[in-house]
Write a protein that binds this DNA or RNA. Structure first.
Lengths: 239, 239
DNA sequence: TAGTGGTCTAGACCACAGC
DNA sequence: CTGTGGTCTAGACCACTAT
């Protein structure tokens, strides 16, 4: 592949050294100047290759010291959980939602703590059921911080999901989540049209915006008709 | 912040334009030459800023055409599932494992299909239970392709988890996974010391190495004592 | 003090898109 | 054809690390 850009050939070479085991993790690799001579190129080109591999967590660089092979990544599986409406649309199926509750409620102690507000301050609360081709697959119970989305109560959630609406009005700053398997309450079971003995896959997610807690959401999925699926390619090189 | 590098100031400027709404998604942004003049810098510096923002999926570039604000990211939650032993160690707890089975078996039709092998070809099969402070939290049932890890049967899995061992001998190429909530079998329930009516969080994962299916694994977690948790910071800028 | 990486310049040639 | 981005050069100055 003599037609590949030089910076890419340098990256490929370094990755090959690491994958062959020749350069173990922590190994001090050749300096920019040395690679400049090996590849008969300029320092800027070598620098780009090394900088990109550093961004990809393949290398670690220390100014004044040198460039090292990064410590081994921990083995982990990244599960990507997408917006329910998009996901259904991507499968070529029809999505619709049913609003079961939309209200303004005072925060109980637990909610107040979650939102870092005082007990009794008001929150918006909504319960929706999402359908895929008329089959209920998700119950979404959500609490919203009014100072982040003051117009939450006046939205038409048949056309825009709470998710989409909040993404637009409140730029996402960060999130925490928790994923568990539990038995549904009587209420949840009836909304999902399942038996109370049927396990549910439950995702709790809290999102932050403007340095506040924007929204807490609990998503219940019937275990027998919903799974989180996905895949991932492991490629050290990109560009 | 006049001490920040120029390329970073350019990145910050572009991100600010996007976040303020001045540049909506799909907007054609100024050319490299234009930014060169705006920031009184060289084209290489502007190029670096734009190239990095492209790698970060903030921008999209089309040679000959121009640079555009990338289409909005889909809202998604990334759940990271780590190696069980590391996770327990990170909590400061003690991990140990119990080997329930380790054998060489001929592939049934279903396994043969999964591994893209012929029915009757042999696979390694293992069942382990992982304990956190003497409490069973995961049952790991695994099938391994012998051509990827011929020495699988002779490992001491009390000291190195199957996960770790396979990561070392078979560089990860990619994976597919499926996450579901189900009721345990009688067997699984007894290994996890739970009631058969207690839901389990089950992760199925298939990994590829050397263009083959390396291993299929099913991990059962007691729903009442195990959850996948995590968080994520949303930051468009990096370097 | 010598060597490393971090950043930057002012040019250059090329492939590709749109007119 | 002109203008865009993609890549590259051969220097440069600086901050930092190790000896």
């Amino acid at each position: 592949m003599s037609q590949a850009p030089i910076f890419q050939r340098i990256k490929d070479y370094i990755i090959a050294q690491i994958e062959s085991g020749a350069w173990a993790e922590g190994t001090l690799i050749p300096t920019e100047m040395a690679l400049t001579k090996t590849f008969s190129t300029s320092r800027m080109t070598v620098n780009r290759a090394l900088r990109e591999l550093t961004a990809e967590l393949v290398l670690v660089r220390r100014q004044g010291a040198g460039t090292y092979v990064a410590p081994q990544k921990v083995q982990s599986t990244l599960v990507e959980i997408k917006n329910i409406a998009d996901e259904i649309a991507a499968r070529g199926h029809r999505h619709h939602a049913q609003l079961h509750a939309l209200e303004r409620i005072p925060a109980c102690e637990m909610l107040a703590q979650q939102f870092k507000l005082k007990v009794g301050q008001h929150l918006f609360h909504s319960i929706m059921v999402h359908f895929e081709n008329a089959v209920p697959i998700q119950v979404e119970e959500r609490w919203v911080n009014p100072s982040i989305a003051p117009d939450y109560m006046t939205q038409d959630f048949n056309h825009v999901t709470p998710n989409e609406y909040l993404m637009n009005v409140a730029p996402l700053q960060g999130m925490d989540y928790r994923l568990e398997a539990v038995l549904p309450t009587q209420n949840i079971a009836s909304m999902l049209h399942i038996e109370p003995s049927q396990p549910c896959l439950v995702l709790h997610r809290t999102t932050r915006s403007a340095n506040q807690i924007a929204t807490c959401v609990t998503m219940w999925h019937a275990g027998n008709r919903y799974q989180f699926v996905g895949g991932k390619e492991q490629s050290a090189q990109s560009s």
